[in-house]
């Protein structure tokens, strides 16, 4: 009996040991970029790389004083907030309709929205470029917000469809018996109840928009310059690798998203699977 318990403990410890190794491997790149961001210039270009060094905050100070970096952050913020809000505004009613209202073609609409999540932006990026040029949307916040909303709308609809599906219908029925129209029932009853779903979808859209690269690279250039584009070009071609500055700005760009990801853990999986897994 004792041996059985001892064996159980050993396997338990082995499992934790394996898990700790896995977590370390997972975290290693994040820890390394943090280490690089805290190195002085000569430590970053050292061969072999230095594992032990005196940490300094110079890189962060330099990056935060760069106008380009702050502009990139504010552009990213504007675009991410804008596209999240537009995505929620357009997608939430659609998700509600798919969850609640019986109408012809609802399956087709749902599938069509899935498709938008599956195609690569490259499929529409070239014609979009031309169209945006005609309408003066190139290199503007509005243009990029529209493009990012395209990326996010399918997600919002499918996530919200899932959330509305989870809410007991009795409330809205009661409201409708009281004489509310479908629109009022949606607005007054369903929407407030689905607030956590709205928040989760919104954070999702924010995350995708914040990290999006291809549209940002091609639809904007000078007036709008989001942080992934900034970091991919800012520290290159300048006579020496600037790994310290690169890492510091990388850390600053990534940190809020790491917090988001942990905060919305459960919803994250739901969102990534378009509501197929709860």
């Amino acid at each position: 009996m004792n041996r059985y318990i001892a064996q159980k403990q050993i396997t338990e410890i082995a499992k934790h040991a394996a898990m700790i190794v896995i977590c370390l491997v997972t975290l290693f790149p994040i820890l390394w970029i943090l280490a690089q961001s805290l190195k002085g210039y000569f430590d970053t270009i050292a061969v072999p790389p230095r594992i032990f060094f005196t940490p300094v905050l110079d890189n962060f100070r330099h990056v935060l004083q760069r106008r380009g970096f702050l502009q990139a952050l504010s552009d990213s913020l504007i675009v991410a907030l804008g596209s999240s809000m537009l995505g929620l505004f357009l997608g939430t009613p659609c998700g509600y309709a798919l969850a609640r209202i019986r109408f012809r073609g609802s399956d087709t609409v749902g599938f069509f929205l899935l498709i938008t999540r599956m195609v690569s932006p490259i499929v529409i990026i070239i014609p979009l470029n031309r169209l945006f040029a005609v309408f003066g949307l190139m290199d503007s916040h509005t243009g990029l917000i529209l493009a990012h909303t395209f990326i996010n709308i399918g997600l919002v609809v499918w996530m919200m469809r899932g959330y509305f599906g989870d809410i007991p219908e009795s409330l809205e029925e009661a409201a409708r018996i009281d004489g509310c129209s479908t629109v009022t029932a949606f607005w007054r009853v369903a929407l407030p109840t689905a607030a956590p779903g709205l928040a989760a979808s919104g954070i999702f859209c924010f995350l995708f928009s914040w990290n999006e690269f291809m549209f940002a690279l091609t639809l904007t250039s000078r007036a709008v310059h989001t942080s992934p584009v900034f970091i991919s070009s800012e520290f290159i071609g300048y006579l020496a690798v600037e790994w310290g500055l690169l890492s510091a700005s990388g850390m600053l760009i990534v940190l809020p998203m790491l917090i988001f990801v942990v905060a919305i853990q459960k919803n994250l999986i739901r969102g990534l699977t378009m509501g197929a897994v709860k």
């Binding site: 997972t26 994040i30 970029i33 992934p228 991919s232 990388g250 760009i253 990534v254 990801v261």
Partner: peptide, 10 residues
């Protein structure tokens, strides 16, 4: 779950 939050560019 952390890697999912890291921007692919970074």
């Amino acid at each position: 779950i952390l890697p999912l939050g890291v921007s692919p560019v970074v």
